[in-house]
Design a protein around this nucleic acid. Structure first.
Length: 569
RNA sequence: GCCCUCGUAGUUCAAUGGAUAGAACACCAACCUUCUAAGUUGGAUAUAUAGGUUCGAUUCCUAUCGAGGGCACCA
């Protein structure tokens, strides 16, 4: 890539002008201000002290030392000591040509070639609603998966679902109690019913000691499968939940390679911990629980097997690492969770380092921020949740209203509404850097203007419409006649590969989001100031080439975010 | 109390230790007989506080204040 080339040239020039004295790493960056060129380096400022020379003088000498190069239009030294590089007309033309020639692979590179990566995300719990927290996790995980694939990685998507545990017992107790005392005709055929049962059961668990005991008893029966009635209810609930989730994954554009269930993992996780207990990695704590003393690592103690003899989240996670590896010999295992898990995960990773050191090294925990409602914390226990279904339908309604008057068929309208709704929702999650909480105000967060998913989609649709017109007018993209002035749009197009690479290194979808938004802005600007398809314009074929390149990169970029690219809207 | 994040414009978010701290929303004004106005153009406002390191700090360090998460059996 260009940065590396510049770095080499600068290094050689420094050597030529000042000799070999152990030059530090040369950072070639994108200047914030575009008048400072396409790339710049501050190396002169860094070595000024050692050379005991004025940085600007050094910069001038280095710039002069590089001299003429076909890659650049000019190289300038600027106060207080920056060296600015301005790329040549040909560079931009050739890049646009490259995009059209290899639309599928432009922007890809092989940083992670043949690396086997397993990404675990979404992780909803059967018997509980799929809410916007899961949505946030899914959007992040899916985008990270795609970003890694774009870098040549071999990605397997995994979904780990909590089909056992106290929450299930609460839901089942709730369902049974409602059926018994309140409404015997209550028909438990949807996830919604079980979710309601869960909320009801949770509240009872907290307020009534006797019920708490009953629920703990149910939990035990779920594990040992000793009660036929409970087994039946359990199977029903699990089935309707998974069916419901599958519909949601389809809407979100996720297809999982592996499904892991806590019910299957728990036994193995427990065995791993018991094994560790013999080796002295774990120890016995209060009330017979098996614990890991995190204090030796500057962390805190956590329970891996509770006093009931059941594996906790921590033990399961530990076992899961091994089970995943048995299925797919990964080089990297990424686990995407909300940031509330950070501290637990450190302890889990600490224990893993002692149990499975090789796997621990390959494991990377990525956390995203929680979606917080302005009214306060979201909790499925109290029923104060925004479900995905609700959000999706609300947004879809708004989009449908906007395209009501358009001349599309009903089927097209529905398809567009779904694509735009998903785009708007995902953008609102992926627009900010991963990790910190998002204050989620549905009306304000879901936007159709400015920085928004639909803004990106709309820009693409516009470009496609222009290209359609070019086709009708029979003007093909060409690279023969082009204006002298390099447009900001061309400059922005050329940045895509380095942005994609950076997003891959940092696992940061928002870098893509920000880039695409800037790119779309440049295109819309270009569109407003240029007539692209124009028979009597000698530059029209090149303008069409730029438009085509834009559409390709926007499509690829949207794919990286997991946002659908509509053809019209 | 201890540990981990984090504090940027009225609001939601950007900015590998660099050049004039960027956007968007909201507000005001202009632009559809050019290819989709979900668009474009112009306009005001911000680094919590106090020190320190550095040629240079929103970024690194220390303290204070404030927010969120965690600190033994739910995940």
């Amino acid at each position: 890539m260009v940065q590396q080339q510049i770095e080499k040239l600068v290094r050689a020039a420094i050597k030529k002008e000042f000799g070999d004295f152990g030059v530090p790493e040369i950072v070639v960056e994108r200047p914030v201000e575009k008048t400072y060129g396409d790339y710049s380096t501050n190396i002169a400022l860094q070595i000024a002290k050692e050379l005991k020379k004025n940085p600007l003088e050094i910069a001038k000498k280095v710039a002069g030392g590089i001299g003429q190069h076909s890659l650049f239009e000019k190289i300038e030294a600027a106060s207080p000591g920056f060296i600015n590089f301005y790329l040549s007309r040909d560079f931009f033309k050739d890049t646009v040509k490259e995009v059209l020639k290899h639309p599928k692979i432009f922007g890809r590179n092989n940083i992670l070639k043949d690396k086997k990566v397993i990404v675990e995300y979404t992780d909803p719990n059967p018997f509980k609603v799929f809410h916007i927290g899961h949505l946030s996790n899914n959007s992040t995980g899916e985008s990270i998966s795609r970003i890694i694939e774009f870098q040549g990685g071999n990605v397997k998507r995994a979904n780990y679902q909590g089909d056992v545990g106290l929450h299930v017992a609460k839901a089942i107790w709730g369902v049974m109690d409602i059926r018994k005392h309140r409404n015997s005709s209550f028909d438990f055929d949807s996830l919604k019913d079980f979710s309601a049962g869960y909320a009801y059961g949770s509240q009872a668990y907290e307020s009534d000691g006797d019920i708490k005991k009953e629920i703990i008893e149910i939990n035990r029966k779920i594990y040992d499968k000793s009660d036929k009635g409970i087994n039946k209810l359990y199977e029903e609930g699990r089935k309707v939940s998974l069916k419901e989730f599958e519909k949601i994954y389809k809407k979100l554009g996720t297809k999982f390679d592996y499904y892991f269930f806590e019910s299957k993992i728990a036994t193995f996780g427990k065995r791993v911990v018991e094994d560790g207990l013999k080796k002295g990695i774990f120890e016995k704590g209060e009330r017979g629980a098996t614990i890991f003393k995190g204090e030796k690592l500057g962390l805190h103690t956590r329970v891996f097997i509770n006093s009931e003899g059941l594996a906790t989240y921590e033990a399961k996670e530990l076992g899961l690492a091994k089970i995943k590896y048995d299925k797919f010999k990964y080089d990297v295992s990424i686990i995407v969770t909300g940031n509330e898990i950070i501290e637990y995960f450190k302890v889990v990773l600490g224990a893993m380092t002692e149990m499975f050191p090789e796997l621990a090294k390959k494991t990377k925990h990525i956390w995203h921020g929680m979606l917080r409602l302005p009214e306060g914390k979201m909790s499925s226990r109290t029923g104060n949740v925004v479900t995905f279904e609700f959000l999706f339908e609300e947004v879809k309604k708004i989009v449908s209203g906007k395209i009501e008057a358009r001349k599309f068929t009903e089927r097209e309208k529905n398809e567009i509404a779904e694509k735009v709704a998903i785009g708007a929702i995902k953008y609102s999650i992926l627009k900010q850097s991963i990790g910190s909480d998002i204050i989620y105000n549905i009306e304000k967060s879901i936007s159709f203007e400015g920085d928004s998913g639909p803004y990106l989609q709309y820009s693409l649709v516009r470009a496609l419409s222009v290209l359609e017109k070019a086709k009708v007018e029979k003007i093909k993209p060409l690279f023969k006649d082009l204006p002298d002035k390099i447009t900001d749009l061309e400059k922005m197009l050329c940045r895509f590969p380095e942005i994609a690479a950076k997003a891959g290194q940092e696992y940061e979808p928002h870098l893509i989001t920000t880039y695409l938004t800037e790119l779309a802005r440049e295109f819309n600007n270009y569109y407003a100031n240029n007539k692209i398809v124009e028979k009597n314009d000698e530059f029209s074929p090149y303008k069409i080439a730029i438009t085509k390149a834009f559409s390709i990169i926007m499509k690829n970029g949207l794919w990286l975010l997991g946002i659908p690219a509509p053809e019209k809207m």
